[in-house]
Design a binder for these strands. Sequence first.
DNA 1: CTGTTAGCGCCTTCAG
DNA 2: CTGAAGGCGCTAACAG
Lengths: 333, 333
Amino acid sequence: MKKITIGDVAKHANVSKSTVSQYLNKRYEYMSERTRERVAASIEELDYRPNIVARSLKQKSTFTIGVIVANILHSFSTQIIRAIENKFHEQGFHIIVCNADDEPDKEKDYIEMLMAKQVDGIIIFPTGGNVSLYEQMKKSAFPIVFMDRTIEDIAIETVVLDNDRAAQLAIDQFVENGYRKIAIVTTSIIRNISPRLERIQGYKNALERHQIQVNPAYIKTAEPDMLYQSLEELFVSEEPPQAILAANDIVLMEVLKYIKKHDMKIPEDIAVIGIDEVPFASFYTPSLTTISQPTIEMAHLAVKLLTNQINKEETGKPSVYRLQPTLIQRGSC
Amino acid sequence: MKKITIGDVAKHANVSKSTVSQYLNKRYEYMSERTRERVAASIEELDYRPNIVARSLKQKSTFTIGVIVANILHSFSTQIIRAIENKFHEQGFHIIVCNADDEPDKEKDYIEMLMAKQVDGIIIFPTGGNVSLYEQMKKSAFPIVFMDRTIEDIAIETVVLDNDRAAQLAIDQFVENGYRKIAIVTTSIIRNISPRLERIQGYKNALERHQIQVNPAYIKTAEPDMLYQSLEELFVSEEPPQAILAANDIVLMEVLKYIKKHDMKIPEDIAVIGIDEVPFASFYTPSLTTISQPTIEMAHLAVKLLTNQINKEETGKPSVYRLQPTLIQRGSC
DNA sequence: CTGTTAGCGCCTTCAG
DNA sequence: CTGAAGGCGCTAACAG
């Protein structure tokens, strides 16, 4: 099964390779009607398929985009990926998805691999552990946009949620419903991941605004497998909270597990709000109040920004885009 | 920002391009210690990155695999993709994921695109709508393995669940718990998608085995957005079922929505078992009994089969691999 | 041990 | 309108 090439088609159609190439690129002005038909027929007959690798080598564009997510286990990542893929597919681009697993080393490998593969651009949920690499990419004008997390002091276009506001929306909702002992729990902040920090800050800001004293014991951060223990600490304390803000979907699920295990009632024993929409929110019992991210918009914006960079369309706009979350009121608060 | 190439490195290090190439391919026997160091230094200094596209053109291998899922909305797809990605990543392969959205035309486009991109192989959840294309690929010895669905009369290696057994496990569980009026609901079978057919068949087989009459009204199939209506028909009938087998995760969620909306109690009013494990199964109230697919094993097997094909290792083994499901007993039945 | 030489398959001037 | 020629960046003989 020898691969058939443009040369074979040319021979078969009795024209030169360049004519076939013209045909492939739809430059029909450059050939007679008859030639065109002959070429078309030969392509059909030989079942010829152009080799995109060869074309890419020549044209310096692979029509492929890399997407590196920090952690694919978040439903947010999955949703964003889906939306990005849809959008790029419309434009004839493929995407390669990589999961850095929150490990800067993996992230570095992926970035280098993707660049070696000559992808036309990268959308990345940065771990934050490769600042000098980011800078280098930026300097070499490689198209890149950050998603979900901001990295300080780097002028790279970034699309994130207004995390402060997300937390405040949740706290407002709690306070409106009469809760004052409110905890927030989130996954580990040892690497200063911006959305987590910002959500905690938003939590504090909101409490202050409502003149509620911030109780440090009500702020819990831990790796996913330590979350159960953190919750235990929260609830066996002298003054357990009456409400919990789960700062992302993974935390939310851990919270729900804990609550079920200890036979507590939502919202009577404990009210909960989760940031990130989860597929079961609407039919869980009780239904779950959540703060949802505008994933589609975020994805589309990121795609747009990246596309502009690829096409070298200059934009004088600001570099960090914060999109607005929405409170979806349901039954858990 | 000119791209720097192997030639630049060669010049900088005062050696020939081929020596640099040798170095890149770790054939250090072919050069002196000093040369090696010089090359290494130059690469470092120039921040050189090999161009994989050029290499691929020469070597006829892109170290990239295409994965086309029929419908990415199924959690099963996501799980499989994750496992496939992990496995291939170990071997230095990238994967490109495509979502055919259950549309044969999209599937066709993707297959052609991936082949044009010279991927080394494809794993595909076939829609079933492109038989002649499948055959053609098979004939040209292009590495390919099917997943999740069987296609008749095509000798392509296929990894699927033992769907008959999956349904039987569920029915056995229902019957053991005293249920006899058991319904099955699944997504549309107009395109003869094998797992759906097989699950229905397994359902029938099990009922027969238990000497329960098969009631056609208890077998419902519909597109996702028509599922609600199908459930309505099921429950407003003269003799509503006491138990429902949800044949996949999407159906399960619709069932749970319906049940919640109508304030029914699980399992008192209606028992339910779902095929496919869902993330909230363990902490839903009640916890959900499910039939889980061995996703990791399935993915690894598919990867292995594909890898063998890529390496042209002949296997005389059978062509359809049916892996075993597991019943996870919880509280919904 | 190192350099020279041909391509891989395609695209793109540039003559004819 | 069509064809010849060169080159994208890298690899792989094959000489030296």
